[in-house]
Design a protein around this nucleic acid. Structure first.
Length: 893
DNA sequence: GGTGTCACG
DNA sequence: ACGTACGTGACACCA
């Protein structure tokens, strides 16, 4: 069966250009749009396996649509030169791939595609049109599918007649009527004023076509009718402009469009010229060895091989075969249940030599006599382990009594470093990203929620085999990417070693004094009950205090208090609002106190109690190393990075975190002002550096410089303002944000900021240059080359762009601070080992490390920890760490 | 599952 | 003119 793919070259290349970060090859040629296009093309070829392909382009500026309507496509921004220079490259690349393309003066790519899709359809062939232009939906039929790009060009959404009906309730041809009524700003097609998509759809559902709407305007009323009557000509013309012309004299025969697979001998040199290294690797996967064996059968073989992957289900007979191959295992993957690795059962394990895959069921793996050699291999650090989420693997195996060692390449962790904001880092998504054979998503194979079900061994082992094939292929590709981004040290010397250290901390856990916690809960309970009855009393009724909706009704409807702020669903009742309402009625203060205690009770008493392991009396958090966009860690099940400290009531919770051994101490050390010290270093601001070189109180020093007074004249208010400004600077300051924080006007906030930048000019220069850098590169970096891409830095939407700019300012600061404490953790782990200490590292809280320490090591640790933290990284200003210890976490202050 | 709220750095 | 401080996770509602 023939299958033709028609691609709207202009549409795709435009979208690729704006979706991709700027990219140039070593001779300065811009290549990002071509790269995006090629990436998409390779994926299409792999997934759709077309027999024919043609790429259509617009030719020249003037088309037949300009006859009678000069303004067509008027008001468009000029094509940026960075994009223009990529069109010739595009054509050259297509020719090198053996793919035909076509353009014709006076016609748009749309019309060429419309014509060829009609010809294909008429001769009974299957056609797939790829474009970003919704207008194209009008050519959809049983034979013609239109794939629209989404999210830039990284995804396409196929539309057949059914999908159009579901989404719009229209037939494909009615798409033209839709455009006629609503117009299209990007093509400067006017449509009818006041009619947008919603109204247009309503009209079409009622009348069916533009002509019918115009003929029956007497059935309508109001402004809409008026507009339709007054602009009926516009509607008719707009419909005509939106109609794709399907009789273009196309000089391409069916044979001309034949696609015989990518011609490796010409395509590879072209990709090399463009310096698309990762695409060259993909090319070899698609076109075999890159020679001329690219007939259809080869591709079919590959597809078949992918679905019929061979996997050995290990049993008492085949285990000896695996045992012999253990030293040659390339990669591994452990599948387990649920989110919390400390409570996860094993579903299965797959090991791969690259050629052969071995699946072990949980029963087999947990049978220590049968799986003896495999278990030994897992725990032997001399055998490197490459795989996916080895941190989780380590924990899951640990709780099943199986030691794990030797993690050397974790593709999830590497994927995180290569793009920390990409939140879909599943094997399936990574396989797609690297253009590998499709790997089904876990949800598709296992089902989710109530439908979750482990499939039979055959299905499961094959799914895992597909995963391990992808993992094995991704490893070398990532190694190339990491090297290119100069992230080898970050990955191999910092993050990979850290993942083992985190696993050790998590296995160790923190002891919780359950009885004290229960007692504390009882105290809270008494106070909460008292507050609740006082609140109901004043309200004159009982209601659900935990429901912001019901609370809002009581405060604003029943008690008639002024509405300070609204949320998208109703009245806002957050603490900021309640503070403002406090003078009106004593109920407000009670509610604030209730909120505080209810939070402590539900999250920190009840929540924490649920997480204590009864056997050990410990909580075992799970530090996540691949979620925070800045490079920080996060903590789950329970979150031990947000235990209360600011208010005394809550701070008492810290008393229940105790050493796990009799007579030991808790010891905590935190970096003092690490983010501002990092800022002093990377901005090079002399004043800021000097302040830290003399170890001054930074907020007082800031107040002195900003307000132009001497140290003695800084009052508490000035210091408070300066502190807020310092925070603002770290977050990527805006006058609005600062005004909110300090409860002052925006003007006053703007003045503070201005004075700050006058006083610290180096900081101003840094903020300007980092935003410029982000615009130029599409990403920002930390001192250790950790990256964060900021695709929205060039957005036309003010909000998106502003957000990206603040992120550009904040991420190098927060991220470098994260780098530093991670370095300190690796050093501390080594120091504990080198000194053969019994002390254990338990927690990291962004700028703080918490240990439990036997009494005989307390003196040593009190020196060793801050010293180690301070020498983690050498900056132009000193790092400072403050240490303290006590019988529980509360006392380390 | 989304929203509001609030705990931390 | 635009409308937000940066980064997380947990809990309770409510549709």
């Amino acid at each position: 069966m023939d299958k033709l793919i028609l691609i709207d070259g202009n549409s795709i290349i435009y979208r690729a250009f704006f979706a991709m970060p700027p990219l140039t090859n070593s001779s300065g040629l811009h290549t990002n749009a071509v790269y995006g296009f090629t990436n998409m093309l390779l994926r299409l070829i792999q997934e759709e396996k077309p027999t024919h392909i043609l790429v259509a382009f617009d030719a020249g500026k003037v088309t037949f649509r300009h006859e009678g309507y000069q303004e067509y496509k008027g008001g468009r921004d000029k094509t940026p030169p960075e994009l223009s220079e990529q069109f010739p490259l595009m054509r050259e690349l297509l020719e090198s791939f053996g793919i035909s393309w076509f353009e014709l003066a006076g016609y748009e790519a749309d019309d060429i595609i419309g014509t060829l899709s009609k010809q294909g359809e008429d001769s009974g062939r299957e056609v797939l049109v790829v474009t970003g232009d919704k207008d194209m939906l009008q050519v959809v039929s049983d034979k013609v599918t239109v794939a629209l790009t989404r999210k830039g060009i990284s995804e396409v959404e196929p539309y057949g007649p059914k999908e159009i009906e579901e989404k719009y309730g229209l037939s494909p041809l009615q798409i033209i009527d839709l455009k006629g009524l609503m117009g299209d700003a990007s093509d400067n097609i006017p449509g009818v004023p006041g009619i947008g998509e919603k109204t247009a759809l309503k009209l079409l559902h009622q009348f069916g076509s533009v002509e019918e709407v115009l003929a029956r305007t007497d059935e309508l009323k109001g402004k809409m009718k008026e507009n339709l009557v007054n602009h009926s000509d516009d509607a008719v013309m707009s419909k005509r402009l939106a109609t794709i012309f399907r009789e273009v004299p196309v000089e391409r025969s069916w044979e001309d469009m034949t696609f015989n697979g990518i011609q490796g001998d010409t395509a590879a040199p072209m990709l090399r010229k463009l310096e698309f290294k990762s695409l060259i690797e993909r090319l070899s996967l698609i076109s075999g060895d890159g020679n001329n064996e690219n007939d259809g059968s080869n591709e079919k073989d590959q597809a078949a091989a992918a679905s019929e992957v061979e996997v050995t289900v290990v049993d008492s007979e085949s285990v000896s075969e695996l045992n012999e191959l253990l030293p040659t295992i390339e990669s591994m993957y452990l599948e387990s249940y649920g989110e919390n690795p400390h409570h996860a059962n094993i579903m299965g394990l797959i090991l791969s030599t690259g050629e052969r895959h071995f699946y072990l069921s949980d029963q087999f793996l947990l049978d220590k006599s049968q799986a003896e050699a495999v278990i030994k291999w897992l725990g032997d650090g001399n055998y490197p382990k490459r795989g996916y989420d080895l941190h989780r693997t380590d924990l899951v195996l640990h709780w099943h009594g199986i030691p794990f060692a030797g993690a050397s390449h974790d593709i999830e962790l590497a994927a995180y470093l290569l793009d920390p904001t990409n939140n879909d880092q599943t094997v399936s998504a990574l396989a797609e990203k690297y253009g590998l054979a499709h790997v089904a998503s876990d949800d598709d194979v296992y089902g989710k929620g109530a439908k979750f079900k482990v499939p039979d061994t055959g299905t499961l082992s094959k799914h895992l085999a597909h995963k391990i094939e992808a993992i094995t292929k991704i490893i070398p590709l990532q190694q190339g990417d990491l090297k290119k981004n100069e992230m080898n040290a970050l990955f191999f010397d910092l993050e990979m070693p850290l993942s083992r250290i985190l696993a050790d901390m998590e296995k160790q856990g923190v002891s919780v004094d359950r009885e004290s916690l229960v007692e504390l809960g009882k105290e809270f309970e008494v106070q909460i009950n008292k507050l609740v009855s006082q609140i109901y009393d004043i309200a004159g009724q009982e209601f659900n205090l935990n429901s912001p909706k019901q609370l809002g009704e009581i405060l604003f409807d029943k008690l008639g208090m002024p509405v300070v702020k609204k949320t998208k669903t109703g009245y806002s009742t957050d603490a900021e609002v309640l503070e403002k309402l406090a003078p009106y009625n004593p109920i407000v203060q009670y509610i604030l106190e209730y909120r505080q205690l209810a939070k402590l009770q539900s999250t920190y008493v009840e929540g924490l109690l649920k997480e204590i392991r009864p056997e050990t009396g410990k909580v075992h958090t799970y530090f996540r190393q691949t979620v925070a966009a800045t490079g920080r860690l996060s903590s789950q099940f329970p979150n031990l990075q947000n235990i209360p400290i600011r208010l005394e009531e809550g701070r008492k919770i810290r008393k229940v975190f105790v050493p796990s051994e009799e007579g030991w101490f808790m010891l905590a050390a935190d970096y003092s002002q690490i983010e501002l010290r990092v800022l002093a270093d990377i901005s090079g601001d002399k004043g800021l550096q000097e302040a830290f070189l003399h170890d001054m109180d930074i907020h007082t020093k800031t107040a002195m410089k900003v307000f132009g007074v001497s140290a003695e004249d800084v009052d508490s208010n000035m210091r408070r303002s300066a502190k807020a400004v310092n925070f603002g600077i770290v977050y990527g300051i805006s006058d609005y944000g600062l005004s909110q924080n300090l409860n002052i006007t925006r003007k006053e906030a703007a003045k503070f900021i201005d004075q700050y930048f006058e006083a610290f000019q180096g900081v101003r220069e840094y903020m300007d240059s980092i935003v410029k850098e982000a615009r130029r590169d599409g990403y920002v970096k930390t001192l250790l080359e950790r990256r964060r891409y900021l695709p929205e830095i060039n957005a036309s939407n003010f909000n998106l762009r502003s957000f990206a700019e603040r992120t550009a300012m904040n991420t190098p600061i927060q991220g470098t601070a994260a780098d530093i404490i991670k370095l300190a953790m690796v050093l501390m782990d080594k120091a504990l080992y080198d000194h053969q200490l019994k002390s254990r590292m338990l927690l990291q809280v962004h700028d703080e490390l918490v240990f439990e320490v036997p009494p005989e090591e307390l003196e040593l640790m009190t020196k060793l920890v801050p010293e180690t933290m301070e020498k983690a990284l050498s900056l132009s200003v000193p790092l400072k760490s403050e240490v303290s210890s006590g019988v529980n976490w509360y006392e380390t202050k």
